[in-house]
């Protein structure tokens, strides 16, 4: 009887390993239907789809580059469309800061930046020294005040670092809305539960960038994994550029960094 040569690169152990890996990966795809045909879209965050997601070993970072933001409001529009956010509530918004020569700061944010900024401010008498846009979104604090105050365990920091709201558990008491130093939470008037920016957790887990990052035409919003040393955010954080976080003195340890933020930005 002739015995077939096994493949030279594969012994029994590695064969079994491969089969098992394939089965696990395959079953994960079956268990997690990706919603529509999102799997056909090329992956934007490398390493999410091809490996089993290790929820305890992830670190995602969001960087907003104020020097590149032009206040077009694309991010706000995309965010509203992605989540059907009710009118008057904003998961993310873009503020306009105007600084006069007397160091007076004027901030406005008509309709959260949804309509863009079509006209300059006309209500300022003094000469303007500096003007810039500041996109705001969830800071994904490591020490999140909103999580501390939730009486029913509806908001939490997931092991991969996202501050999420369990909408089945939330009773809509709005403690967390008061606790959040960045005012990113609101009570959804339709569902009566608290809603907030999630950095598009559902997109990230499918290997896609958050909707606001995807539509930003100038690259002012950057998102990526710190576990991937080729990612843009890793190299920005590694490099010498000055990055700041909002309300550092509150000890919330945000994972949202700002590049080019003046000290007046709060």
């Amino acid at each position: 009887m002739k015995i077939l040569d096994p493949s030279p690169k594969m012994n029994r152990r590695s064969f079994v390993k491969n089969v098992l890996n394939g089965t696990i990966a395959g079953s994960l795809y079956l268990v997690w239907p990706m919603g529509g045909d999102s799997l056909e879209i090329p992956e934007q965050i490398p390493g999410i789809r091809d490996t089993a997601y290790d929820i305890h070993n992830q670190a995602f970072v969001f960087i907003v580059d104020i020097t590149r933001c032009i206040g077009c409001g694309s991010c706000c529009v995309a965010d509203k469309r992605e989540y059907n956010v009710p009118d008057g509530n904003y998961r993310t918004w873009v503020e306009r800061y105007v600084k006069g020569f007397s160091d007076q700061i004027y901030v406005d944010c008509p309709n959260g930046g949804l309509d863009g900024y079509q006209h300059p401010r006309t209500d300022i008498d003094e000469d303007i020294r500096d003007t810039f846009f500041v996109p705001k979104l969830c800071n994904m604090c490591r020490e999140a005040p909103c999580v501390q105050v939730c009486p029913v365990g509806a908001t939490f920091i997931s092991p991969d670092g996202f501050v999420l709201v369990d909408e089945k558990r939330c009773v809509g008491c709005a403690y967390c809305i008061q606790a959040c130093p960045y005012s990113v939470r609101f009570l959804n008037p339709v569902t009566r539960v608290v809603e907030k920016c999630t950095w598009c957790y559902h997109r990230v887990r499918k290997g896609l960038l958050p909707a606001c990052v995807e539509v930003c035409p100038t690259g002012a919003r950057k998102f990526g994994s710190m576990r991937d040393d080729t990612s843009e955010v890793y190299n920005i954080l590694k490099g010498p550029g000055v990055l700041t976080v909002l309300k550092k003195e509150m000890g919330t340890w945000p994972a949202l960094y700002y590049k080019g933020a003046r000290r007046e930005v709060v």
Binding site: W32, P33, G35, G36, S38, I55, A78, R81, E82, Y83, G153, A154, T155, F156, S158, P159, F162, L164, D166, K168, R169, T198, Y201, H202, R203, R205, K206, L208, A211, E214, V215
Partner: peptide, 16 residues
């Protein structure tokens, strides 16, 4: 907190 809430959040279908 409810650990299943994470999987539920990940399962939300994308729109963009």
């Amino acid at each position: 907190y409810r650990a299943n809430a994470i999987a539920e959040a990940a399962l939300v279908p994308i729109r963009h």
